[in-house]
Each structure stands twice: as structure tokens, then as C-alpha cells.
Design a protein around this nucleic acid. Sequence first.
DNA 1: TGTACATCAGTGAACGCGCGTTCACTGATGTAC
DNA 2: TGTACATCAGTGAACGCGCGTTCACTGATGTAC
Lengths: 221, 221
Amino acid sequence: MTAPKTARIRPPKQSRSKRTLERIVEASLELLATEGLAGLTVHRVVARADSSVGSFYARFDGKDELLDYLGERVWTEALERWETALQTRDWSALDLADVVEGAVGLLIDAQRSRSAYLKALDWASGRQGDAYEAFRNELLQGLRQLILQNRGDIAHDDPELAVRLGLRGVLGVVDSEFRATQDRLPRDVLIEECRSMLMSYLTGDAGEGRTGGVDFFEVWG
Amino acid sequence: MTAPKTARIRPPKQSRSKRTLERIVEASLELLATEGLAGLTVHRVVARADSSVGSFYARFDGKDELLDYLGERVWTEALERWETALQTRDWSALDLADVVEGAVGLLIDAQRSRSAYLKALDWASGRQGDAYEAFRNELLQGLRQLILQNRGDIAHDDPELAVRLGLRGVLGVVDSEFRATQDRLPRDVLIEECRSMLMSYLTGDAGEGRTGGVDFFEVWG
DNA sequence: TGTACATCAGTGAACGCGCGTTCACTGATGTAC
DNA sequence: TGTACATCAGTGAACGCGCGTTCACTGATGTAC
């Protein structure tokens, strides 16, 4: 999983054109957020940015390049925030339970970042959520390492696998909570439940293999 | 969570026009799958369906109505399959572990249904994944009821909450596995791990509340 | 400080293309007697 | 069975609109001396 390929724009050479570029970026993200893909046209972007089509094409080869550039900007900013958040703490002193709780909290907070734009940008570019998914993998990869530092406390036969799947599960729970429009759980309850889910999966004893309990045939094509 | 509102098309009155409608639906879904949103134009749809723009507009008021109609079709078909799959078994005789394992298996198989089209249709219509998410909620709701029939075996303080979040977690794991392009787990391993995760969360003892272990401040805007 | 010049930045009318949509027309199917 | 008529279905050229993009031009900024 790597960052999207670098978008090659014509870089601004004066502070004036640099400000114009920033206004175009802002206007694009605003339009994307408020009106969706269909609202994101070059004319509307430059109108909202108090610029002009000519200025736009002085920076970008075309609309596709704007989308790539936006994706790269959002990706980079979100990742920088994430790394700052990760490095703010000294994780080495924590035991498994604390690392897990910290990881869950970080995931919840990360959900509020602008990384949601990545999803819309993916769909606008015809990459159906790929960059967004790659970013989430990037997040989970860092957390995997942290948790595996306490692998001695993990009862699961295959700690790598368990941490990978467990974090995916937590991310699924967090996602759905943020998508929900009603009955949202308070942050502390959400953290506690996710911690409980992940901890019991990693350390619990409900994992002894069951065989032949249910024999489902596949109904789905 | 309810199905998308009924799309009002002009119904075909002869078998000939009914077949034409089916070809248009098929061609639309094929184009959506192979070329994405950008490939879905009226001209291209009718060309692929060996039809004509006039025939198209004899059925649909416009392109938006096609999208609504497709969404409704996909929704209905996927839900019918789901209900068939659910009713194929007698769940009342199973204990909690077996119900959980069965539910996990069903979720995995449901992932292969055409419901993925719902996501693309949502984005094409400017509803950003809403119908797709509603469909997933529909799936989980049925499974919740089944699992809660054995609520006596659930150790968690709040069985309703635990089942809701636990299923969300499993769905997150299944999703990510199907998105992965490499290192995909075999179906039986995936079922076993999801079963283990959900069971240990519902019945495990790693859930006793922790307080004040970690005090994270929020870094994300 | 002033002047001359080059480069950078910005403007918006205009263009062409492809899209969604309309419509006048032809052919197929169903119905009445 | 045959004929007349109404309705349904299908066709594709044509239209208008909005999109992405180009370009000739004006103004601002930086530099040399």
C-alpha cells in the first residue's frame, strides 16, 4: 500500500499565484463536500475561488490532475496528523490492554480527519475507494506494530493474523458508528466496547476450534 | 432503514418491450461494473443493449429514473436471496456458538451478491453509499434477532449493544478481506476467526471495565 | 530613484464535444367484426 | 380468415446545454543597470 502517485502540477512561482492555488484547493474540497461529485466542475471551482479558468489551467494540465493533486494533498495531510498523533505518546511503556485502548481511541479520532474526502475523490477519479482503503491500511499497519510489541500477552495462535483481523473489526465498528444518524454512542462507551472486543479476541479462550458444527451451503452466486 | 423509494417507470405492455427493458438493465449493470460511473451514459447503454434512445425514453423519464430503478432492482433481488438463505435453516435448534458461526458464514456469502452494485449506484446518484449502507443494516438486523434468541448465553452487560457492535465488527473484517487483492484467507479460516472474535466478545471475560488506563487527548480536528 | 524589459499571473470570451433529451416517423402487435 | 384500425414498440437524426479546454490579451511582479 503506497501513497497515490505524485501529481505533477506547474508550481506557483509567486506568493500571489500560490494563494490562488490554495483558494482553488479549498473551493474544490468545499464543493465536493457540499454538492458531491456532480458539483465539482472547473467553472464552479474557479468561481467559488474568485479565480478564472485561465488561472486554473496555468497550474493544472486539466481536471484529472486537479483530482490527483487533491488526493495527494489530503493523503499527505491526514498521514502527517496521524504520525504526529502516534508519536505523541511513548507506547513502549504500556501493556497490551493500554496499547489496545490507545489504538482504539486513535482510530476513532482519525475518523474525524479529512480523510473522508479521499473516498469522494476516489469515486470522482474512477478508482472506487482504492486510495481511501490504502490510507486505512496505512493507519492499521502502524497500530499493528504497536500492539505486536506485546505479543507475549496474546493468546491467539497466530498473533499477526489476530491483530490484523481484530483491528479491521474495530475499524468496522467505528465506521458504522460514524455513519449512523441516530443513537450514536458516546465516545467513551465506543472506546470501551471496541477495547473489550479486541482484547477478548486477542486474549480470550473462546477461540478453541469448532468443527462441523454448522454446514452451510452457499446460496449466493 | 427502508428500501429506496419505488422508481416509477412506464411499465412494458408487450413481451417484446419487456425483453428490451431487461437488456437495458443488464447493459447498465455491465457498464457500471466494467467502466464505472463515467461509462454509464444513455447512448452507451442503449448501444450495448441493442436498443435505441427512443426505446429508452419510452420506459424511463430520464437517466435519474434509470438509476433509481436499478437501485430498486438490485436491492430487491439481493434481499430476496438473503431472506431465502436465512429461511433455509431452522435456527431455533442451534446454540449460540452455532448461530454465530452460521451468521458469519451468511455474511461472507452475502458479500458475493450483486449488492456491491448498490454502492456504485449510490455514488452515481449523489447519495454517497446510503442505500448500500441501508442494505447492510437490513442484513445485520435479521442476524441480530437470531443471535439474541440465545441471549441467555451472552455474558456482556448489554446483549443488544454487544450483538450490534459485534456483527458490525465481523462485517468490517469480511469487507476488508474481500477488498484485499493478496493474501486472502480461505473461507473456513475467515469463518473461524470471525466466529472466535464475536463469540469471545459476547461471552468472554475480558470485558470488565478499565478506567483511566490511558488518557488520550484528541489530535484530530 | 527611474526606466526598460522579461517573466509570471490573471482574465473571460469562445470553441468543440459529448451528454441527456425530443420528436417525427416506421414497423409490430393486439382487437373488433 | 380477412380487413381496418388503434395502440404499442422501436428508430436515429437533431437539438440545446454545460462541460473541459484554448487563447489572445491585460496587468503585476521581479530584475538589470
